[in-house]
Amino acid sequence: MLIRIGLAPLERLTRAMTTIDLLKPGPRLAATGHGEIAELITTFNSMIDRLEAERGSSTARALSAQEAERRRVAQELHDEVGQSLTAVLLELKRFADQVPASMRDELLQVQEITRSTLDEIRRIARRLRPGVLEELGLVSALKALAAEFSEHADLVVGRSLDKNLPELDAETELVVYRIAQEGLTNTVRHAHASEVDIVLRALTDGVELRVRDNGRGLGTSVEGAGIRGMRERALLVGAELTVASLPKRGTEIRLVVGHTGGRR
C-alpha cells in the first residue's frame, strides 16, 4: 500500500505522457511525490510549456506565410486571369455582332461559359483573400460568407450576427473568419446536412462563434486536418475551440475568443 501511494504521482505522469495533445492545452500536473518524482514532474511540465510555446511560434509563422501566399494567388487570379478572361469576353461580344446568325448561338454559348468561368475565378479569389473583412469588418465578412455558401452549395445557411461586438484586432478577426469558413466547408464536404447556422455574439470579455449543422455528426471518425487546422488557429490568439457531435443531431463548432483590443 505504501509503495502504491508513493508511486501514484508517477502513474499520473505516465498517463499524461501518453494522452497529451499540444493542440488541446490543459492544466499541468501537480508536482507531488517525494524527491526525484516531484522533480521529474516539474521537468515534464517545463518541457510541455516549452513545446507549446515553440509550436505556437512555428504555427504563427506558417499561418502568416499561408495567408501571404493566399493574398498573392488571389491578386494574380484577379489581375492576370480575371483581366484576361474579361478581354476574351469583350472579343467574343464583338465577334458575336459580326458573325452570321447561324453561328451566333454557338458563339453566345462560348461567351456564357467564359462568363461563368470568370465568376468562379472571382469567387475563388474572394475565398483566398476576404477583402470585405479588411474593408468592412467581421460581421459584414460573415454575412458575405453565408450568402456565398447559400448560393453555391445545396445548403440553407442561417445566421445570427451580433453587431455590438467588442473591438478585435485584425489577426483575431481573421482567425474567427477562417474558422467559420472551414466549418462551413466541412459541413458541405462531410456532414450530409441540409441546414447550418452561424452564430456570432458578444460576451462579457470577448466573442463567441458557433457553426452548427443538422448533419450526421462525426461518429467515430478521428479529427481531420480541417479541425486540427482550426485548433491551431484558435491557439494562435489564445482562444478556446470545442467540437461537439451527436448522432442525428449534427456537429457544433464553438470558438470563444477573449477581448484582445485593436481594429474592428
Rank of each mutant, 00 (worst) to 15 (best):
I41L: 12
S58I: 05
A141N: 01
V256F: 09
E167S: 14
L165Y: 08
S116W: 00
S150K: 07
V88G: 01
A147H: 12
L200K: 01
E151Q: 14
V132L: 14
R4S: 09
D162G: 02
L92F: 10
A244P: 03
R115T: 12
G33A: 07
R28M: 06
V176H: 05
R127W: 02
L241E: 07
R126M: 04
V176E: 06
L10F: 09
T19E: 15
G33V: 10
I48E: 13
A193V: 04
V243F: 00
L145S: 02
L40K: 02
L2V: 11
I20L: 15
I113V: 11
R210K: 12
Q66Y: 06
K24M: 07
T185F: 07
R178L: 11
T117P: 05
G229V: 11
L200F: 13
F95G: 04
R126S: 15
T19Q: 15
N45Y: 03
S57G: 09
G215N: 01
Q83F: 12
S64E: 09
L155T: 06
R189M: 06
D154Y: 07
L161M: 13
T260M: 07
E223S: 15
L77F: 09
G33W: 04
G219P: 02
T18I: 14
D169K: 06
R216C: 10
T114M: 09
D205Y: 06
E112I: 07
L7P: 05
R254P: 00
L165A: 07
A141T: 07
R72T: 15
A125F: 13
V211F: 05
L63Y: 09
A191F: 03
R127F: 10
E67V: 00
Q111W: 02
P100R: 13
R189Q: 15
R216F: 06
E80I: 11
R201Y: 03
I41S: 11
D119N: 01
L168P: 08
S84H: 15
E182Q: 06
R50T: 13
L128Y: 02
P27G: 04
V175R: 11
E134Y: 06
V81K: 04
A180L: 00
I227D: 05
A53F: 09
R50I: 08
E11H: 15
I124V: 11
G33I: 12
L168D: 00
S194L: 11
Q109A: 15
T242G: 02
V99N: 07
H190E: 03
D79C: 06
I113P: 01
I227Q: 05
R233H: 04
A87M: 14
R72Y: 11
L155N: 07
D21W: 00
M103Y: 12
V156A: 14
P9M: 14
V199K: 01
R216N: 08
L51D: 14
L128M: 04
H34Y: 12
G131C: 02
I37H: 08
A239T: 04
R129C: 04
R254G: 05
G35C: 10
R94T: 15
A234W: 03
G219L: 01
A234V: 01
V99P: 06
G258N: 08
L85A: 06
E112A: 12
H78T: 09
E54S: 13
P100T: 09
R70W: 08
I179M: 04
L77A: 14
G82W: 11
L255M: 01
G224M: 04
A65P: 01
D119T: 00
R231I: 00
V99K: 04
